[in-house]
Write a protein that binds this DNA or RNA. Sequence first.
DNA 1: GTCTATATCGGGATAGAC
DNA 2: GTCTATCCCGATATAGAC
Lengths: 218, 218
Amino acid sequence: MKTAERILVTSLDLFNHHGENNVSSVDIALELDISPGNLYYHFKGKEVIVAALFDLYKSQMDKVLSAGTSKPLSIEDFFYFLYLIIEQGQLFQFFFHNPSDLFDKYSGIAKPFKIQLITLEKCIENLLNEFKTKKIFAASNAQILQIVELVGLVFTQSANYYSMKGQAVDDENYLYKSLASVLFAVLPYINIEPGELHQLQEAIATQSLVGELGDVAE
Amino acid sequence: MKTAERILVTSLDLFNHHGENNVSSVDIALELDISPGNLYYHFKGKEVIVAALFDLYKSQMDKVLSAGTSKPLSIEDFFYFLYLIIEQGQLFQFFFHNPSDLFDKYSGIAKPFKIQLITLEKCIENLLNEFKTKKIFAASNAQILQIVELVGLVFTQSANYYSMKGQAVDDENYLYKSLASVLFAVLPYINIEPGELHQLQEAIATQSLVGELGDVAE
DNA sequence: GTCTATATCGGGATAGAC
DNA sequence: GTCTATCCCGATATAGAC
């Protein structure tokens, strides 16, 4: 792996684990066994690193989003879609730890990041409206917006919430708990045999989701 | 006002607006037109200030919580109770901006803060269970826990979410939006004439809550 | 109680040799 | 591409005069 790439991978890892704020350029260099000077040769400061990581995040998230909107989804597909989104977010956790500070320090990413988030939410809103058209989902526009906002809240802030409560939620459990919260909010508005979806909820709650949904997705 | 008190008030204000991380001891002193040395005479560093502010937060929140549990509440009272809780949280926003960093830096408040949060959630759980007993609320224990978790998420993280989206939500709107989210999650499980509570939701959504709920609370 | 002056420390950033 | 040496700066913290 080239040095530049190693720097990105290591930075992402350190940022995710300790918070961007608590990782200095020297820390990154130290972790990589290179000199601070060398680090600066490749990236002129953390600003550039963060920007590069954002580009990576955006490109990966865009891939997921377009996969979710290219063809009609079933409700089950929809939750697998959400699963993929949450997973991507988790890979770039550090962006969500303290966005206001981050945007202050690196003002370049503020706008694009917000746009990305709004795109994501718009995308979910569209999917819900499709379900509504297909009569498998019944909610007013206001309710749909509420759901979208809740999904956004869960997607961007659940990790902060759990870490704040001091519950050491590991990466896997975190995904299921987030999904369960979303499902819980959506469930009352879904129009199919109750048994069928409570099964899904059960699956998520007991964290056997992959077995249940894994094949649906391919 | 004594200098010590002025320091606390000003610190809280600066912390809330700019984040504890971005406010140095010198900033506080400057804002108060006193010298850094003088500041240190009263509080030996930000650590002590933060600890004092936490004590204040805890005592005020405890007052609200005990008011909410001393006598049986109606559903309307319950939402006014949530209103007061969210309002208190808002007065000490900075604690919620980046708790993990805060707890790292000021390890003394980590435990008490978590306990306070868990107490609050337990309190809400108890209230929901009471409503269940009175048959005005129907939900399984798992569902109640889900609701409590959503309330916790909304209470602790909504502000971060809105600021992350770049929506400049002013203090008042913020309260109503948070309340509306909670109401939305709870609504499907409430057992009274639909019209009655949709009225409440409408009131919250249109932000005329104070008129609707203000008198109920006294 | 309040001030000025100063010590210390860590992070960001760069110059210049190899 | 990589290193060492160094500089600058902001934040914390304290000493000692008034």
